[in-house]
Design a protein around this nucleic acid. Sequence first.
DNA 1: ATGGTCGATGGTCGA
Length: 255
Amino acid sequence: MLLATWNVNSLKARLPRVQAWISDVQPDVVLMQETKMTDKAFPALTFSEMGYESAHFGQGQWNGVAIVSKVGDRRADQLRSREADAEARIITATCGGVKVISVYVPNGRALDHEHYQYKLRWLDSLRAHVQAVATPTDRLVVGGDFNIAPSDIDVWDPKALEGSTHVSAPEREKLQALCDWGLRDVVREQHPDPKIYSWWDYRNGSFHRGWGMRIDLMLVTNQVADNTTWSAIDRNARKGEQPSDHAPVLIEVST
DNA sequence: ATGGTCGATGGTCGA
């Protein structure tokens, strides 16, 4: 089973690229973030014509998360409804016997900004939610845009980012708390090499200069990690016409 | 690195 997470940065603007990528890669499940649209505008028919069931939790011009799957089981594994959250940042489904959660963690903006405190509180509530809906022995994938680089090798220049969000100790500790509960950063486990990034700023030619960060993660329980046969970040998706500023992250799990 | 870019907007703001 091939699972992906991708911050598409507006599904309206990105739909041609998303369709082309899904047709090419044929993932079984895609977790999306930043769809930036209402539920009514979500192109469910487009996905169903491609063979995918879908679930979307949108709020309009900001945020918005979705899950599309072609391995939903009609009895036990149907895509489930949204979570309760003031902002559209989390949605859960069960696909092919694996519980999947698509998350869009708040950016934080700046360490001294109120939004950064919101980010930390949101990460606390994420852990509480995960603990409430699953146990570490379940088959669980929590994937999405975490807006956190887990360690310094996940950024192009740690010195340049000192004092910024995405790399600060408090948010990294919240991420570690999820791992302490029983989630593993399986992509990092399989790729200990530096310079594997999932996001590059649109500005300053960052992509071509290699100024990126690995902030899109697939955190998985042991049951999934021990059966992950392959993983990758598809940086080709960051190239070409009208790309998202994020690349899709993929894991292949044997079932 | 934060200007420089995008996307949703319809003035700017957020990332």
